[in-house]
C-alpha cells in the first residue's frame, strides 16, 4: 500500500515538474512584451524616460536576466511561495490576486463536480431500471453531455437571467453590496452563484447519467448477476451489487474528466463574468500579465494533481481487487 502511494507520489511529482516548466515557458514565448504594454498605458513620450523605466521594471520583474537564470529564479521563488508581482494589478503580489479568486472557483467547482457525479450516478442507475425512463433520460443525457459549457451558460443566462429576470447574470455579487457576513450578502452571493453552478452541473450530469446507465446494464448482464438470479436472489440485492461495481469505472471517469470540467468551469466563469480563476486568466491574458497567468495555471495544475491523487487513493479503498494485488494475494 505505502509502496503504491510512494510510486504514485513520484509520478505526480514528475508531472508537477513538467507542468510547471511548460507553464513557465508558455507566457515567455508568447508574442507581446508586458513591460512595454504596461508603460504604453502611462503614455510616456520621452524616449529616455521610457528606456530608464523599461530598465527599472525589467529589473524589478527579473526579465533582464538570461532565460535559464529566470527559470531557476522561478523555482527558487516558487518554494518561497513567491509567484512574483502582478503586472495587471501592480503592485499586488500574484498570490494575493489568486487567493482572492480561488474561493469563487472552488465554490463553483466542488459542488458542481460532486453533486453532478452523485446525482448523475443515481439518475443513470434509476434510468437503467425501466424502458420508458430509459428512452426519455438517455436522449436528454446525450444532449446535455454534448452541449458546450459556454453555450448552455449563454442559454441559461439569457432565459433565466435576462428574460425571466430571476437570477443576476454577471459578477460574484452585486456592486452595490460590500463583502460582509450578513444574510443580504449571502443571499446575493448565492443568487449570483446559482446560474454558473447550474450550467456546469447540467453538462456534467448528462455524462455521468449515461455512463452509469450503461455500466449498470453491463453489470446486470454480468455472470455474477445471472448466477444470483438463477439462485432466486431478489432484484434489490442484485441491483445493489451492480450499482457498487458500476461505481468503480465512474470513479476513474471522474479522475479522467477532471481536467475537462475545470476547463469548462473557466469558460463558464468568463460567460458569467464570475470573479474566479477563469475570468482572471482572461484578464491576465489581455494584459500580458505573465506572472499572474503563470500563477493561475500553476494553481490549476496543483489542483488537478491533488484531486487526481485523492481519487487514486479512494479507488484503492473502494476496489478490493487493487488492494489485494498490492498486498500480494494468495494467487
Amino acid at each position: 500500500m505505502w509502496r503504491y502511494i510512494g510510486r504514485k507520489l513520484f509520478i505526480y511529482l514528475l508531472t508537477f515538474i513538467v507542468a510547471v516548466t511548460i507553464n513557465w515557458m508558455i507566457p515567455r514565448f508568447m508574442p507581446g512584451d508586458p513591460v512595454r504594454n504596461m508603460l504604453s498605458r502611462a503614455a510616456i513620450n520621452d524616449p529616455e524616460a521610457m528606456a530608464s523605466m523599461t530598465a527599472y521594471y525589467e529589473d524589478l520583474f527579473g526579465l533582464d536576466e538570461p532565460l535559464y537564470q529566470q527559470y531557476l529564479n522561478f523555482w527558487v521563488s516558487l518554494f518561497q511561495g513567491d509567484l512574483g508581482i502582478s503586472v495587471m494589478r501592480y503592485p499586488e503580489p500574484v498570490t494575493d490576486v489568486i487567493m482572492g479568486s480561488v474561493p469563487y472557483t472552488l465554490g463553483l467547482l466542488l459542488p458542481a463536480i460532486l453533486l453532478s457525479w452523485i446525482v448523475g450516478n443515481r439518475f443513470g442507475a434509476f434510468a437503467a431500471r425501466s424502458k420508458a425512463l430509459d428512452n426519455t433520460v438517455l436522449p436528454v443525457g446525450y444532449v446535455l453531455t454534448a452541449t458546450p459549457y459556454m453555450w448552455i451558460a449563454l442559454l441559461l443566462s439569457y432565459t433565466l437571467g435576462i428574460v425571466a429576470g430571476i437570477f443576476p447574470t454577471a459578477g460574484g455579487f452585486s456592486y452595490s453590496l460590500r463583502p460582509e457576513f450578513s444574510w443580504v450578502f449571502i443571499y446575493d452571493l448565492i443568487s449570483h452563484w446559482f446560474l454558473p453552478f447550474l450550467s456546469m452541473f447540467l453538462v456534467a450530469l448528462g455524462g455521468w447519467a449515461i455512463g452509469m446507465r450503461n455500466m449498470i446494464i453491463y453489470e446486470l448482464e454480468a455472470d455474477y448477476s445471472n448466477y444470483l438470479q438463477a439462485l432466486g436472489a431478489p432484484r434489490r440485492l442484485i441491483r445493489r451489487y451492480a450499482f457498487r461495481n458500476a461505481m468503480l469505472p465512474q470513479i476513474t471517469g471522474l479522475a479522467v474528466q477532471l481536467g475537462t470540467i475545470i476547463a469548462g468551469s473557466l469558460l463558464t466563469e468568463v460567460v458569467f463574468n464570475y470573479p474566479g480563476l477563469g475570468t482572471l486568466i482572461l484578464d491576465s491574458l489581455e494584459n500580458r500579465d505573465f506572472f499572474l497567468l503563470q500563477g493561475i495555471l500553476l494553481f490549476v495544475v496543483i489542483g488537478v494533481l491533488i484531486a487526481n491523487f485523492i481519487i487514486d487513493i479512494i479507488y484503492v479503498l473502494v476496489d478490493p481487487r487493487t488492494r489485494v494485488q498490492m498486498t500480494g494475494g494468495s494467487s
Binding site: A222, D223, Y224, N226, Y227, L228, A230, L231, G232, Y241, R244, N245, L248, D319, P320, R321
Partner: peptide
C-alpha cells in the same frame, strides 16, 4: 419460480469462474 430456485432446483453455471461478485 423464485421459491423453487435454490431451495428445490439449483445451478452450477458454466461460468463458475466469474459467478462470484468480484467486489464482495
Amino acid at each position: 419460480m423464485v421459491p423453487l430456485r435454490y431451495n428445490e432446483i439449483s445451478l452450477i453455471p458454466q461460468y463458475a469462474m466469474s459467478a462470484l461478485n468480484p467486489t464482495r
